[in-house]
Design a protein around this nucleic acid. Structure first.
Lengths: 342, 342
DNA sequence: ATTTTTTACGCAATCGATACCGGGAATGAT
DNA sequence: ATCATTCCCGGTATCGATTGCGTAAAAAAT
């Protein structure tokens, strides 16, 4: 079943004009007489003519679409980011093609190629937790594909980036736990490859140092799949709870880790915050309804998406190659609730 | 900045062949000698040739992309559905273009036109809470655009549909509240226009009747924006709590209504389930971590998305016009937790 | 009245890939 | 040796829209 739309040719035939005349009339060219223009425009209105974007893409060598590559759509943070991207894109006449890596390297590469082969004009991406070989991204970028990174960025690549102040967020979160009387604070982070992991851990460490608390390597655990799998969080927690000096509080460095950690505590009947304080990076919008209400470091996800989309579109639409890249750093918000108050 | 890809023309020039020969060699036509084929294929591999999907779309009059129109991406149910759609689409070589209505009629119409103008091959949609004029959908559908409805479907339109057994879900949820000793059960539903609202309310009513409980019109409240706005839920709840016979339990008919209702109870210090039992339609995947853990009617969202995508693709790829439409009804799952147990 | 200029439009190429048609060359048949 | 067949491949139109170039006809200038 096909969906037949009216073309410029139909208009030309109907009005006894050439396609070039119709095209120019529609674009309001000075070469066309007012009467002809009016006739064409009216007919176009009546027939609800819409230029075929595919033909345009072929001619203009741009598809007016941008790709977004995230690890998982069904994740508050990413869906909020996509929301932001979508609002800007829509407004500027672009559509958004979404792909997900599911935190898997192979899927990320194939998604990237997929987007490239669908000839998107640019890509906004946050790398998967597994990725530590950035050659696929680098290659595509080297070939001239416009790209903007966000959240999990790649340090070695020169491109526009949008992130939050992760170090500061983790620093404040940790400081807050300390202020609330927790002494043995552990950190459950995402994959060690990720920029956000490094930054957040650094913030955590800095806060400990500034408060004269010794750093304990056993207190830092990584989740290779970014917390996607419950098991990896459980494994990390078991290790922590078995260490010589059991932690009395945890800072969790991603959405999934935070919630899976709560699941673990619920299962093991570890009472938060009495037995274990908790603060986590999370963009859930019902953290206050959790039991106990959850203290979080929240990222301004929609704004990040908007900013990333603006940067990408400016890059796409710029006449000459972009040589100066900016890294936009937005502040993370801390929301103190029950889970981190002893 | 442009992203230059290799074309069939480049291959032809490099090998001293015509574009038609190259094209045929790539498609393994019998008219091309094995040696030429091999040369072409090898060169194509070396240069990492990818056919330009835009040129193909123009020629074939299909874009290999499908549109998805939902009210809101950042909603567990819809993002899970999109997840399902995406997995099937990706596998079959289609990409997914997402648009959202934000429960607004005008945005829905414009998103629909947007998708059509981006010449997607088909659309999977769930109408907005505000929509009660389906002429825009009808028109597009009448023009031959392949469509599949899910969740919030349009009764009057003959198309493939994917839903859950809403009546049954609401019936079981209500019965469960009754079984647990609640007597005055109210229902906070989404917009009265929606199919899901009608079906869920019917299930609620049927359960009351079957248990010899009188129907009280004051006990049914609607949220015109589907619970998107906290205020409309608060207003509904205030009305309910002021009615002569105060309800002792609520069945909430959408994700957003459920969570906003919990917010309201928390704010007003109405203890769930002691003061007010609650069960709600929700696809959040951490309802067991809420305080109290939330009893829910859950939809198999990913499966719904998969099924909808399969139906749409079969429709798109069918040679002749589809005349028989099926309505796939999946079972809703009931998860009984603390919030509905007195 | 003739030349110049302007106006208003059509022709045709182009983007990348496909497919119909047509034709040269090699092989086989007689 | 001549004709028919098969094999391989190229030319060209096509999809929808844009655009540089060419050009009648009308208007303006001389």
């Amino acid at each position: 079943m096909k969906f037949e739309a009216i073309t410029i040719k139909d208009i030309a035939k109907a009005l006894g004009l050439s396609t070039s005349t119709v095209s120019r009339a529609l674009r309001d060219s000075y070469e066309i007489s007012p009467e002809t223009k009016e006739k064409v425009l009216q007919y176009a209105r009546e027939t609800n003519y819409r230029p075929n974007p595919i033909a345009l893409s072929l001619k203009e060598k741009r598809s007016s679409s941008i790709g977004v590559l995230v690890s998982e759509i069904a994740n508050s943070f990413f869906s909020q980011v996509i929301n932001g991207i979508e609002s800007v894109a829509q407004e500027r006449g672009y559509n958004v093609v979404i792909a997900q890596s599911k935190e898997n390297y192979e899927r990320e590469v194939s998604a990237l190629n997929y987007l490239a082969s669908r000839s998107v004009d640019g890509i906004i991406l946050s790398v998967s937790a597994e990725t530590h070989d950035f050659s696929a991204i680098d290659q595509l970028y080297g070939k001239g594909m416009a790209m903007v990174g966000f959240d999990r960025i790649v340090d070695t690549l020169q491109m526009h980036k949008v992130i939050v102040n992760n170090k500061r967020g983790a620093y404040d979160a940790t400081s807050q736990l300390i202020k609330n009387g927790f002494k043995n604070i552990a950190c459950v982070a995402s994959s060690s490859y990720l920029s956000i992991t490094k930054e957040r851990i650094q913030g955590y460490i800095d806060a400990l140092i500034d408060n004269n608390i010794a750093i304990n390597d056993e207190f830092i655990e990584y989740c290779a799949h970014g917390g996607m799998l419950y098991d990896e969080v459980e494994t990390a927690m078991k290790k922590l709870m078995k260490s010589k000096k059991k932690p009395d509080a945890i800072i969790a460095c991603s959405d999934k880790i935070t919630t899976n950690l709560m699941r673990y505590c619920k299962k093991e009947k570890i009472i938060i915050p009495q037995k274990l304080g908790l603060i986590g990076f999370s963009n859930l919008d019902l953290t206050e309804l959790l039991s106990p209400s959850l203290s979080v470091v929240r990222q301004p996800a929609a704004d990040m998406g908007k900013k990333a989309a603006e940067l990408l579109l400016s890059m796409i639409e710029s006449k000459r190659a972009v040589t100066e890249f900016q890294t936009v750093v937005l502040p993370a918000e801390i929301h103190e609730r029950e889970s981190s108050i002893k």
